[in-house]
Nucleic acid binder design. Structure first.
Length: 233
DNA sequence: AACCAGGACGTGA
DNA sequence: TCACGTCATGGT
């Protein structure tokens, strides 16, 4: 298992290169070869995020991207940035109507506005340099396992593995898991068979998303996935 | 012009 | 627990 997961990782890394997640709107670099993205990625730079506002931006984006494509989230983030509202204080001050209006392009705007407010209040009241636990994040209404793990892995640099629908789809197609694996079961599979390394975890999840966008979109023929030939069962 | 996206929550069995 | 229904815009 360990060797198989490593094989997949290095194949994806060789194929697509470092992904530079999590994207930040105020980062000027970009990777134009990436599918369906506009800007904000910072491949090879693992020092990001540096500021408190950038950490907040990642948490915000993690909520906004729930079941939603990144380009639509980016639109929202850029709007907030243009209004100088891409920080927890201004978001908390914003009246709900305005916040809802700003979030609209990302969909589920009523729910997401509420989620954002709850997260923002939590973030502001968080003691400086205090790193929240996974359980604390999960206790917030609107923060589920993938959102919590994304915040930890990309925003707070905690080596915790992020699982998403694509991860499940790929592992299932490769015959590594069956349908009844839970989120935490899949997470454990990676964490128990990979070195506990921040960069590997960050890249692995991002690479899975990049690969899945090409071979595992809805309606795709999963048999065309090149991993099927690279990985022995 | 349907169909779907880097999920999470509420509900009833 | 679990299997559904709900939330919603905009891109392809």
């Amino acid at each position: 298992m360990r060797q198989m997961l490593l094989n997949i990782y290095f194949y994806l890394l060789e194929e697509y290169g470092p992904q530079g997640w999590w994207p930040l709107v105020d980062y000027n670099g970009c990777n134009p070869t990436k599918t369906g993205t506009v800007s904000g990625y910072h491949p090879g730079n693992y020092d990001i995020p540096k500021t408190r506002d950038q950490i907040f931006e990642i948490g915000l984006g993690a909520i906004l991207t729930q079941n939603t494509g990144w380009p639509q989230v980016e639109k929202v983030l850029k709007t907030l940035q243009r209004k100088n509202c891409l920080n927890p204080e201004r978001i908390l001050d914003m009246d709900n109507e305005t916040l809802i209006e700003n979030i609209k392009p990302a969909g589920y705007f009523n729910q997401k506005a509420r989620k954002v407010k709850i997260f923002t209040e939590y973030f502001i009241n968080l003691a400086q340099d205090k790193i929240p636990t996974r359980e604390e994040l999960l206790a917030l209404w609107g923060v589920g396992p993938e959102t919590a793990d994304s915040m930890l892995l990309y925003g707070l640099k905690v080596p915790t593995f992020v699982v998403d629908a694509y991860t499940r789809r790929i592992l299932s197609n490769l015959g590594i898991i069956n349908e009844k694996y839970t989120y935490d079961g899949i997470k454990d599979l990676f964490e128990k068979n990979l070195p506990q390394d921040l960069i590997i975890y960050q890249e692995y999840h991002a690479l899975i998303v990049e690969h899945a966008k090409r071979f595992y979109y809805k309606g795709a023929d999963y048999k065309k996935c090149p991993l099927l030939q690279r990985v022995e069962l």
